[in-house]
């Protein structure tokens, strides 16, 4: 199978005929982001994971589309606050799609350094929800 990175122009032409403003693809061949009115961004060879920045935090992208919830609908208190230490797999938030609540788990042990997405707002695939400092 060929890589989508070899077909950027074709994909862009297909997208131009739709209402889609942004397309992101992540795969073994790299990371592609096409934005209406923008230049294609291609990161070849990577997995799309952002490298550690100077403050050694990574962006935690949304696993999908939905309304981001920091608080379970039955509860009053948010699941995590900035600065909280969390364990791998611990639920940090939910994506609400109609009646479904999709948990967003911590990718590994670490500290939630910032909560980027606002509670109750619509987020798309790949939008940054949290910034996260993995435990070394």
């Amino acid at each position: 199978m060929t890589s989508p990175l070899d077909h950027v122009a074709e994909i862009a032409a297909l997208l131009a005929a739709t209402d889609i403003d942004c397309l992101e693809l992540t795969g073994p061949a790299g990371h592609l982001r096409l934005r209406r009115g923008g230049e294609p961004e291609v990161t070849a060879g990577g997995t799309g994971d952002e490298p550690l920045s100077e403050d050694e935090t990574v962006a935690m992208p949304s696993p999908g589309f939905g309304i981001f919830l920091r608080v379970h609908p039955l509860h009053e208190m948010p699941l995590v606050r900035s600065g909280d230490s969390v364990a791998a797999g611990q639920v940090l938030g939910f994506l609400k799609i109609g009646p479904l609540l999709i948990p967003v788990p911590a990718p590994r042990d670490g500290v939630v350094s910032d909560i980027v997405a606002h509670d109750g707002t619509l987020v798309g695939f790949g939008d940054t929800l949290f910034r996260f400092s993995p435990q070394p």
């Binding site: 609908p73 039955l74 939910f94 609400k96 479904l100 999709i102």
Partner: peptide, 11 residues
């Protein structure tokens, strides 16, 4: 599926 639901009492 390892997901949840909004309780019907809230929905």
């Amino acid at each position: 599926l390892e997901i949840g639901l909004v309780p019907p009492a809230l929905a």
